[in-house]
Structures are given as C-alpha cells and as structure tokens.
Design a binder for these strands. Sequence first.
RNA 1: GCCCUGGUGGUGGAAUUGGUAGACACGCAGGACUUAAAAUCCUGUUCGCCGCAACGCGAGUGCGGGUUCAACUCCCGCCUGGGGCACCA
Length: 965
Amino acid sequence: MEYQFRSIEKKWQDHWKATGAYRVSNSSSRPKYYVLDMFPYPSGAGLHVGHPLGYIASDIFSRYKRLQGFNVLHPMGYDAFGLPAEQYALEHGIHPAKSTAQNITTFRAQLDNIGFCYDWQREVRTCDPSYYRFTQWIFLQLFGSFYNRKIGKAESIELLKQAFASEGNINHVCPANENCRFSAAEWNSYPEKQQEDILMDYRLAYCGWGEVNWCEALGTVLANDEVVNGVSERGGHPVIKKTLRQWYLRITEYADRLLEGLDTIDFSEAMREMQTNWIGKSYGAEISFSLVNGDKQLSEILTVYTTRPDTIFGVDFMVVAPEHPIIDALTSEECKASVEDYLTYVKSRSDRERQAEKKISGCFTGGYALHPFTGRKIPVWIAEYVLMGYGTGAIMGVPCGDDRDHRFAQHFTIPITNIIGAAYDGAVANPTKDALLENSDFLNGMVMREAMAVMTQRIEELGIGRRKVNYKMRDASFSRQRYWGEPFPIRWDNGIARPLSEKELPLLLPEVEKYEPGPEGEGPLANIPEWVGEGLETNTMPGYAGSSWYFLRYMDPHNTQEFCSRSASDYWNQVDLYIGGTEHAVGHLLYSRFWTKVLFDLGQIGFQEPFRKLLNQGMIQGSSRFMYRLLLTRGERKDDHFSSDVMVSAGWKQGYEAGNISVQEILKEVAALRPDLVNEEQMKLTEGLIFQAIHVDVNIVDGLELDLSRIVQWRNGEYAQSIWLLDQGKYICGAEVEKMSKSKFNTVNPDQLVEKYGADTFRMYEMFLGPVDQSKPWDTKGIEGVHRFLKKLWRLFDDEQKGWMVEAAEPNAAEWKVLHKAIKKIADDTERFSFNTAVSTFMIAVNELNDLHCHKKAILEPFLILLTPYAPHISEELWSRLGHTDSILDAAYPAFEAKYVQESAKEYPISINGKVRANLLISLDATEEEVKEIVLQQEVIQKWMEGKPLKKFIFVKGRMINLVV
RNA sequence: GCCCUGGUGGUGGAAUUGGUAGACACGCAGGACUUAAAAUCCUGUUCGCCGCAACGCGAGUGCGGGUUCAACUCCCGCCUGGGGCACCA
C-alpha cells in the first residue's frame, strides 16, 4: 500500500499522547540532558515557516539524545506578557489575558501539527499568577541583596546594614556614588528615610531616575522602535526625553563575572564577541582639567575619560556632550547664540542618529580648558557624537591619533599637534600604540604603549586624575509604564520602598476598565485609586523579567512552595543545549546569565551559567512575489491614464528596461486587449513607463507564475477588473528576498504544508533547506523532493504493486556498507547540528538501497531508528509493521562498525602542477615509493609531463597525488 | 557610525583538518509507462570551445592582490546582501 501520511501521523500523535510518551521524570538512572528552545512570545499572527526552524532542530536533537539513552528534558512554554497584547487591548478593548490565551491556543495547535516531543505537562506561562508569583519573589531577592565587592558575590542587604551600624561604609564603597562616606556613628544617627536612600544605592534592584521617550500627544511612553526621526511612529507626534522614577537592576556589578563566564560556556565566537562588546570593558584614566571662560578662571573642572592618557600632549581640543552640565558656565557671551542653536538641533535627535551621523557637527563654547602640563589653552567644543552616558560625557580630542578627532579638527580647521613624528602623515590619523612620542615633554622618546602607565601614574601623583576601568554596559532599566506585566511587590511608605512579605505573593495584577496610560507618563495602574491608595508601585516589570529564569521553572513547574526545588535544579542543572535566534544575543542572554549568577550567589541554585551550549538559528527569509502596475509618464508627470489597472507580466518589464521593447509596443498590446483604454493621442504623449511593484500573496503564485483564477478573488476582488498583459499566456511575477512578514504577503503557513505533505516531510524539508544557523530564503517548491524521498523509503518496505517487501535474508557486504556509512555520517552530522547534510545522507542511503534492491530487515530496521529523530511518525509506523510492539522512540541507537565500510583501494586523482589529469585505482596499503612508481609508469602521466623532470612528488594517503614538474 | 554574519550553477545548498569544486535536492530539457493525467522510473544539466559521440581543452566559488606543490578554505585591500544596536573613546 502507499504512504498515507495523514492517517499515520494522526494515529501516532494520538498514541503518543495517550501513552504519555513524552512525559519526563525528575529521577532516572539514565544521564540527564536538557534541550531548550528560546521562549516564544505567542503573537496573534500565528506561526509562519520561519518560526519552527529552531524547534525542529531541538526536537531532532532531543529525540536523538533519547535514543542514545539520555533522560531528556525538552519543555515549551510562553513568554506571555508583552506590549502587543496591551496594544490590542487598547484598540479592541479585549483583556490581554484573554487575547493571550487565545493566541496560545492557536500557537499550540500549530506546534502539535508538527509532532514535537515536548512534555506539555511542564508548560509555563509568565502571565500566570502561579508563575509570576516567583518572578516577584526573585525580584525581592534582588531588592534584598547587594553586591559585596570584597568577596565578589551578592549577599543579603541585612549583612550590609549590620556592617554600616558597626563600621560605617568603610569596607563597602557605594556603587552609585563613590564619594559617599559615613562612619558607624553617622549611620546610626541618620533618620530611617536617609538610611533607606543609602541602602537603595546598594541594592541589586533599585529605584532611580531615568529618561524615557515621552510623547505628550499620545500621553504615553514609547519604546525606541516606536520613535522614528524624533517623532512617534503612530501619528508623527513629537517625542521628548522625560525623566521618570524607574527601577533598575545593578547588572554592572556583575560586568566582570559576566565577562569571565563567557570562557566557561560553549557559545559561538560571534556571540561571545557581541556580549564582550556590549559589556565593553576598557582600561584608561580620568583626567581633570581646569577651565577658563574669557579671563575668568572657573571653579568647575572638566573631567574626561580616555583610554589613551599617553596622548595627552597631542590634545588640540575638548569635546563635551550636549547634555554636559558644564556648558552653561563655560559658554562665552559671543558663543551663546550659536550654542543654543546647536543644543536645540541636538534635542531633536535620537542617540542612534547622533551615532550614525556621518556629517561632522559641533559648536565651540568659547571656553577653554588648561593643559595640566603645558598650561596651553585648549578650546572646548560641543558635539553630538559625544554621549553623556558613557565615561564622563567629555573627551579630549587628539587628532593625530584618532580618526574621528582628526576629521573633527580638519572640519573646523583646528590646528593639529603631531606627537608621533613620521608615524603621522598629516592626512590621516594613526591610532598606533607603538610609535615613539615627540612634543611630549617628559614622555619624549617613549613608546606610546609604555607611556600609558607612566602618564597614569604621573597624573595620580599630581592628584589631577586616576586610573579607571570603564564599562559600556549600564544598569538595566527594569520598569515599564504598562499594564500587561508583573506588578512590583513594593509598597511605598513616605518615600520608602517597602517589600511585600513572601506571604503576600503573588501580588495580583488588578483588573482595569481601560488600558490608557496614567497621568504624567505613569502606567495604567496609576489610574486605579485603590492601588495608588495602598501605596503600591504603579510601574510593572519588563518582558525580560519572566524570561530571565523560566528555564529553571521547567524543572519543577508545579511547585507551589519554591520557584524550583534545589533537588530539581541539582538534577537538571544547566541547559545542555539552548537554541534560538541571534536577536537575543545581548538582551535576554545577558539578563538570564545575570539572574542565574545572583541566584547562585544567594545559594538558591548550584550553578552560575544557565546555558552550557548555545546554538543560533538563522532567519528564514521570505521570497516575495510582485506584480507590476503600469504607469505612464509624460515629462515630469506620472499619470495613470487607465481607469482600471493594467498589470504587466515581468517579461515585458524586463524587455522594456533592457531597451528591447518600446513604449509603443507595450501600449499597442494594451490597446489590443482593451481598445477603449488607449487612444492615439495618449500613445503619442506618453514618453515613458513606470512599473509599480505590488506585493502579491506568494500562496497564489506557483514558482513565478501567478494563478490568474485566484488573483481576481484576492483581497475581496481588488484586482478583479485588472487587465493582465501576459508572457506567452502566463503572468510571470518578479521575485525578491525580504524579511518574512504578513505585510509583504510572503508568509507561508506550516499548517498548509503539513496538510499537503505531512509533518515528517515538513520537518525534514525545514532542515534540508540549509545550515540551521544560517539565514536563507524559503522556497516551497523544493519540499517535493523530500516528500519523494519518504515515499521512496516507504516503497523499500511496502510497494503499491508488489505489496510488503521486507525479507529476512542476510545482507551482503554492499548493503552493510550503505547502512554503516549512513550510521556514521548521520550520527556525526546530528552531533554537529549539520541537519541539512544528515537529510541528504538519508536520501543517498535510500537511493543506494533502492539501486541494490535491498529490502532486508537487518538493514532497514536500524535505518528506521536513525530516521526517528527526523521523521518520527513514518519511523514508528514502519517499526510497528516490522512487528514491534514497543515504541521506536526508546529503541537503541545503532552502533557504527568500521569493519563494514573499510576499503582496500582508492581511486586517486592525479594532478600535474595542480591540475587533475588522471584517476588511478591504487591499494591503500601502498607505500609512497610504490605509488610513485605506479604513477610514473602511466602513459597519460608521461604524456602530461611532456618529458620534463619531476621536481616534487606529493602523496597524501587516501586523498590525492600531485606531481610538480 | 558601530557590532555580527553571509556572497559557490537557473535555485536551496555540499565540500568537517589547505588536498578531485558543484554531493543531495529543486527547476529545466528529453524519454519510458498511460487513452490522458497524476504518480513512478530513466537520461542529461557549471560556463565557453572543438566534435556525431567518446575523449578533450580552457575558464570558474563576489572583486583585486598575495602565501602554497595545491586555496571555496589562509593573509592583505576592496565591493556587496542580510541582521542587530543602549553608550565610539
């Protein structure tokens, strides 16, 4: 009988569900293995073929590990809080909990279709009170802790209080304010409010002030991507920076440990680099300069941060950020107007724009800094490329050694001092550290690299600066002015943040009437009198709160006492394989690494890196299809003369653009179709054509050919009246690779493909598409090939005409060889996540078995086990037809035996001067001397050597032979 | 601007450590079976040249250099597609 995938897949999915085949226990004699997919947000748009790529990869690997005898944890759940549901609620008045639950149902049905081996009993949802109760609890741990720099780990804030009471803060520098110093006596004399304010400066979760994108017209705070060119994306209203009270996590205290931890985990080099750059540790110095405005010496000083203190004698100007507080005092009378203009200009610019701007902009303040060694007056400028948040918000400009400084100096014709002699050519900056210093007073003749330490020491001796380690990373903003997130378990009491007791958790998200923001940029919770009346915090937590620890909850999802029992986390330990996209390179991955370290420090778990190995999946791009609307031009005018649309097939467009087809020819074609539309005069007046590309739904295009019967119904018949100018009876679309998205009509729904070809085909095709970690465009056409492969495999067992084919005979050497080659290659490929080559290996093996007419059980049975991770349904079906009553899911993975694949001879390619000229079968036992002799005897070789003497004979055993003449 | 990542036939891709470039599949072309279609099977398919064909020759992995007996693979300099960003010092 033929391969009936629909009934087979339904049958086994039901069976596996009924038998609880994917249930995982927290105790087992088998070794554990934990495979995790990145937490999905259940969006309303549903899955497209790009989403399951990583899930299929992780599913294959989980099943593979299970066959190898591991107890495999492979859970799934939902990162269910988030902005889209809230936006939806605002627009449609539907409670986010309701729409989210709906989305999850759809999501789940789509996942089930594909036949994943998730243990659904372990599902978690971050918006579920039984889950966020522990998110709140972990927040309280962060709130109740500080980072003890002395021992390099987090500790209870109670220990800090005791220390303050007995010794002041002498042993605990305040991370928020290094100048804060007090004795035990002082501490004990402080009123409670002041003590609490100080403690807040130490807590790992703390309240501070921060800037947000405030849009007055919308009355709300906007995310960065909702702001475009300084105005709101929706409506184009102005957006300004507004300072609000915000919660933060003191992740900066963990910068070094997050950096060091990277060496202990198996992340790609690229990923580690991205995190390293994000943390951005640099070594340098802070140097202070005194300032003058005109003749007046200012009391303020200007502190700059530099990684190159050795270049201080090359300073030709200073640049401060436009937000720098010194600007007021420093700006001279003459410069006031231009400075104000410049500051106004900068206010309209986002940080991103300021960074990306290629055009040099800046403004002189009129004030000067005094060089600490030479006393030279150095002009102080303002420029948008310097940002207030990093370092001190001020830099020293050294044009000869820094490219940007150099361009700045040239642009504003600031004279350039050369401190590196010939190493600087006067045209471009040279950022070397190895040049010898000149014009540098006591550093003259020194190599720059060495001068750095000398200079740092000198400025420390003089008390005008100090060595300083800087991080680009800053504390993580941890509050949102939103409704659909975890409420903070915090009650405000006369300006003091009081944590709720554990017994009061979960602090439930209250019901609201509407989801509009509260007054003055506060969140919707500020609209609830009872909530505000109790002094409860009106911010909610951001999306990454729930996703920073979810991998722990899967280990013990139903625990009502703890976030996760120690025995469960000790058993499952780290995630062995984590699969997800690079978009989480820094955000999510860094935060969850941070939370894990804190929980480790506090003794809650026994490991400090959450993910042992990370595999990044590439993005599946859409392959968009276009139809072309014809527009006529006359001079500058662009006109649509036609009362209804004329859609031109791609061939005409290409012909016109290549200059092979004239305007008149195309118009004549149109006139032939609809004489009423084009008249003589129009044809005369038309000078050119424009082909307006319109996205057309890829699902009504076969390859490039548009299905004309369906296009007329598309979008409620929007194109029903269109006129179609065809190429040889067909409408051919244009194509382009773009991001897969609904708006581009290039999404392909996995449900339809599963319906048409089955889950096994779909799974294998997603893998066959290319390396899992690379981005690639989707093309539905190729799926046929994979489907044919499964049918071919099926026919090895059961032929439509000939019936059941499997026989018990002992396989011959060729058959054994096919099997064992496949075992080796498929296990290796699966192990290194090269799923695409594994799929081709399956195809090659089936092709070969087919050629050998092999239907032997001893070959086919182990082959099915190999296939199980990739195509579980068909494998289980054929397995049961072979007579097994147990499930193939727990079969033993076949062992590779080298004896079956050993070769005695090899067909060597023989090159002369690197060009292959012959192939020769030579025994693998032959020594180099023997090989040389055999090769040189060959007539073909002699011919190619043309009698020239042999210079070199290269023999790589088992690979190739090269003769150099 | 910065960071990351790609670029190989008509298409997706293979080549795991520098060792026969184009596996496997799609598409396309031709053929078999069929009343016909579907399904299936067979043959061919990097480009150019000579040729009936076999065989053969030349070129070829984004571009330009380099290292090497040998480069898709390593080095230098460019071009270009994709993705990300909070803060370049």
